[in-house]
């Protein structure tokens, strides 16, 4: 039996998308939400993540269907372009809504 939440107003927190909620992935998605596409170098600079971390989090976001990762070349150098999918955009909007819903109602 599931216990009744003490404060029902925070119930939306339980439904928060855990793929987005990790701070590194949230940073990545925030930047992808406000631009059309970005390459990995740009995302690394903006988020301050290491290559290893960026790669791991991008893979998780790709698995969830939130981003597309296109590998190509710019001249002779490899370039990875990342773009938010429609599903990712929608998930991010729902995430914002849920977070706002909880924190807007909290007393100061």
């Amino acid at each position: 039996m599931v216990a009744e939440p003490v404060a029902p107003d925070v119930q939306p927190l339980a439904d928060i998308d855990q793929v987005i909620h990790a701070s590194a992935r949230l940073m990545i998605l925030t930047y992808l939400y406000v631009v059309e596409s970005a390459d990995a170098v740009f995302l690394k600079n903006m988020t301050g993540l290491t290559w290893g971390n960026l790669s791991t989090h991008l893979s998780k976001l790709e698995e969830a269907g939130y981003v597309t990762i296109d590998k190509g070349f710019r001249g002779k150098k490899p370039q990875t372009t990342i773009r938010l999918t429609g599903q990712g955009r929608e998930a991010f909007q729902v995430y914002r809504q849920r977070i706002r819903q909880v924190f807007d109602d909290l007393p100061e």
Partner: peptide, 14 residues
């Protein structure tokens, strides 16, 4: 500049 800061395509509004 581009190899240092990367490439980004901005939104239509921008």
């Amino acid at each position: 500049v581009a190899p240092r800061i990367g490439a980004v395509q901005f939104s239509r509004a921008r």
